[in-house]
Write a protein that binds this DNA or RNA. Structure first.
Lengths: 227, 227
DNA sequence: TTGAATAAAAAAATCGATTTTATTGAGATG
DNA sequence: CATCTCAATAAAATCGATTTTTTTATTCAA
């Protein structure tokens, strides 16, 4: 482990929080599923207290729902919500992009370039899915990092996690991946040239494309008992 | 049960969460203060487990900060952050307002009128601060409720709570209160006439006014040891 | 006097057990 | 046959005690 600095120094509740968060985003649990706390306890080899604290944090974050005296459940996945998440994500990220372009200095440019380079490297190993996912997340983070608004970045991160829950349902598609990657490259160029208008349009397209892919995959399970 | 559905049926951790949340927003704890868990336990008469779960949720919500093995602390209050919160709040609320005006039906209009009426009633009793605060929050909620985006409303609520932490520091000011209340009335009229442009400008002013008042109060303590 | 090392105290985090609440299913009743 | 009651079971929530970590206080050497 080179990249993650504070993995072993964190307390148990933080570790299990991160692990559970990733597993939820990766779709390891079925949507709507009720979490059996003692089963989680055994599976993740953690005590009850750290586990419950992590579950509470995840509920506050929106990756779990807490029902009064009935424990925790994985939120249902609905087409309507995906549209909401994607639409708002596009708006907020365009907002942040504008501010990032206006405030970004050369250090920001360097970080964007570096993150893009790592993303391209990760692209060379399609079998290492999680590596690419992390590089992808970090690229988008780097692009908006200089926007100056702590809270805007926080909300965007939250929406990104929510969006990924849906996006990750879709099977890998090389053609789409290729198109998205071209857009990443173009975004870097537009960042360096500070072309706000073009970059906004491109980022909007970028999210729209991911959205439509996720949408196609989200529809099918819902229409099972509906058509 | 008509008005307060799940007040007494909630479990202890939810009750203490709400109580602590209100106390944090009301400024009962000093900014930057470290929370002594066992003191809280005694003060609120709750057990350790529900208390810790509530603290974890509040940290995920952004009303507390958790330091690795060092417990919880109240976030510092900085002018810079207030500006961030107010600016983003204005942008997100204007966004929601536009969508609310476009999607709002007559039921929404009724709820806005009802909430405004309750706010005016609460205004008649300036000594009951909390009543007014609740009515005020509910009015702004009602105004945006029909915007159609669950996640946008969620973020706006979160920002509102953060903003109130700052706003509540300022001493009551009848003149300001009067100006704000006039704006509430004008917002209702513009909602009924669906004048999006004017309403956006007014809401922006509304937040800007609150912001400048809070700003004036936030500056003084910071400049104590700085000038 | 300062500063590192260490012991004592306090606080946070975690564990195991208990209490409370929801769920299930068998038997009674209409 | 459906529905209701009530015990039995399972699960969630909470408690009290223990373990781990940090903070404070103290000692001793430079």
């Amino acid at each position: 482990m080179t990249a993650s600095p504070s993995a072993s120094s964190d307390m148990a509740s933080s570790r299990i929080f991160e692990t559970l968060k990733q597993d939820l985003i990766r779709g390891r649990f079925a949507a709507g599923e009720k979490l059996a706390i003692s089963a989680l306890k055994d599976h993740y080899r953690v005590g009850l207290s750290p586990l419950r604290e992590a579950l509470n944090r995840l509920a506050a974050y929106g990756l779990l729902e807490q029902v009064n005296q009935r424990g925790f459940r994985v939120p249902a996945m609905e087409l309507e919500e995906l549209d909401d998440i994607a639409g708002l994500r596009a708006q907020l990220e365009c907002m942040a992009l504008t501010q990032a372009f206006q405030a970004g200095d050369s250090e920001w440019e360097s970080q964007v370039l570096a993150a893009h380079h790592r993303l391209r490297r990760a692209d060379e190993h399609p079998e290492q899915v999680e590596e690419w996912e992390q590089a992808h997340l970090r690229f988008h983070r780097a692009l908006l990092a200089s926007c100056g608004s702590h809270w805007l970045l926080r909300f965007i991160e939250q929406l990104h996690d929510q969006f990924d829950r849906y996006r990750r349902l879709a099977p890998p598609n090389p053609a789409v991946r290729k198109a998205l990657d071209r857009q990443h490259g173009e975004l870097v160029e537009l960042a360096l040239s500070r072309d706000i208008r073009a970059a906004r349009a491109l980022l909007d397209d970028h999210i729209r494309l991911s959205h439509s892919v996720a949408r196609g995959c989200c529809e099918s399970p819902a229409s099972d008992d509906d058509t």
